[in-house]
């Protein structure tokens, strides 16, 4: 998952096939491409919307142009050969500690076609404070998922019918799943509850 790498399907040095040691992951097998009819269709119909394709664990991971996410969604859902009628999941991803400082977030879409049994993962990048088009007009299930991504990461979805917090209290002023939010919460969230010896406890906060 090389987020920083520009679109270049062949890595510079062809990796020598090193047999995995006992008990270690065979990375080449994990990254092996798989045939995907919906990916082929998408590349054919909207070639300029597809920015990068990688494979992991047998699923194509497609980075799409964030400007055209709704168009891509409509195509994948309605095309007779793709029929991605189920948006299985939609979530945010904070990449600030994964070697890609800008744009900070990804929105990850997990699509599934019950007719074909095919999976596809879409990703679209969003900068902090920027907006991405909502796909709640394509799949209604996106409504709550996008509210959660807004709540947890502060990703804004343009055209969302009701973009409010969903899990945290409405007056809350932070986005807890961001990587710079401390695991145990901020001092002012739990005020006097902190014990004097808390400093000594070895809690790893990422």
């Amino acid at each position: 998952m090389d987020e920083t790498k520009p679109e270049s399907p062949a890595p510079e040095s062809a990796p020598k096939p090193v047999p995995p040691r006992k008990g270690e992951a065979d990375e080449a097998a994990l990254r092996a491409p798989v045939p995907s009819r919906s990916l082929d269709r998408l590349r054919q119909a909207l070639p300029e919307a597809v920015q990068e394709v990688v494979f992991h664990c047998g699923v194509p991971i497609v980075r799409v142009d964030p400007e055209r996410i709704v168009e891509v969604g409509h195509f994948l859902k309605e095309d007779a050969q793709c029929r991605m009628t189920l948006l299985s999941d939609l979530c945010g991803l904070d990449l600030s500690r994964l070697g890609r400082p800008e744009p900070r977030f990804d929105v990850v879409y997990q699509l599934f076609s019950p007719d074909q049994g095919e999976r596809l993962m879409l990703k679209a990048a969003v900068a902090e404070g920027a907006e991405i088009q909502s796909v709640s007009g394509v799949w209604r299930t996106a409504n709550w998922h996008e509210r959660e991504a807004f709540d947890m990461f502060g990703i804004r979805f343009a055209g969302h019918p009701d973009l409010r917090r969903i899990l945290m209290p409405e007056e809350y002023d932070a986005h807890p799943l961001r990587k710079d939010f401390p695991l145990e919460g901020r001092e002012r969230d739990h005020g006097n509850w902190r014990r004097p010896d808390d400093e000594r406890r070895n809690v790893r906060v990422r």
Partner: peptide, 22 residues
């Protein structure tokens, strides 16, 4: 695990249970 990501699905009693790990 090596760098990578996976979305895995099971059929729970209430429907599709999914886990997305990076």
């Amino acid at each position: 695990p090596p760098k990578g990501e996976v979305y895995h699905v099971n059929e729970g009693p209430r429907g599709e249970l999914g886990v997305y790990l990076v």
